[in-house]
Amino acid sequence: MARAVTPQRKALNTAIAALIGALIFFPIFWTVLTSFKTETQAIADPPVWFAFDWTLENYTAVNQRSDYLLHFWNSVVISVGSTLLGLMIAVPAAWAMAFVPGRRTKDILMWMLSTKMLPSVGVLVPIYLLFRQLGLLDTRMGLVIVLTLINLPIIIWMLYTYFREIPGEILEAARMDGASLREEVTHVLLPMAVPGMASTVLLNIILAWNEAFWTLNLTAAKAAPLTAFIASYSSPEGLFYAKLSAASTMAIAPILIMGWFSQKQLVRGLTFGAVK
């Protein structure tokens, strides 16, 4: 399709795309902008655009709320922890299904997917009661366990679709060359699957970081990640736009950056390989 497009046409397309892109992105832009204003400027009418006293005081204030760093750290521990734990469980399973497929492999994969369709609210009560019983309420450990289990099917599926693209002959060659099963996986399969694993990890961290059902329902103060911490700004006494903006900016920035890097893999992960 190497056909010439007139520059005018191209410019028009660009202008429309820029306009729509800016509109959709605007709430994020406005949040970031507001985070640098004073509280008064944040609610000024008419709104101030750029001509305000840029300040970092909101960031300082949010960070001084003794708990902010704790919540940030909770988010990191929970999302990274559940991802790594999930990976450790999923790699062997994905290896088995991709390279030693049996008659039931397809059924197992579909069944794993079906567990993802179980609505969380359907098991809210028992999980809540079990966690209370086991002392896991409001612990990072508890959330790591739950998020690992919810995202395990996605991790297995993504790894499976990546592994399937690796020719089995290469693993057989390793087997002929005397590699044990563990060596076959660590020396040959995993290094070859690095790009696929990286996207799996990235997508999963994003999903876990933004998870907002279990994190809201199973935590109170101690183990609350940023999703729950930000939710505390919904009460009227927390109504400080500039500080809310600063806290929000810090909460979404890392994931926004990761997300931009993983656009393509996102499609594959979220559609279970149905769209590549």
Binding site: V5, F25, W209, I252, W260
Partner: peptide, 27 residues
């Protein structure tokens, strides 16, 4: 469509997906 800097516009359009639900709701 053919245009300049597609990557940038695409990024702008995709960004909301990465915003955690509590943040987007509160904003």
């Amino acid at each position: 469509q053919p245009m300049w800097a597609t990557g940038i516009w695409r990024i702008l359009v995709i960004a909301p997906f990465f915003v955690m639900p509590t943040v987007s709701a509160l904003v």
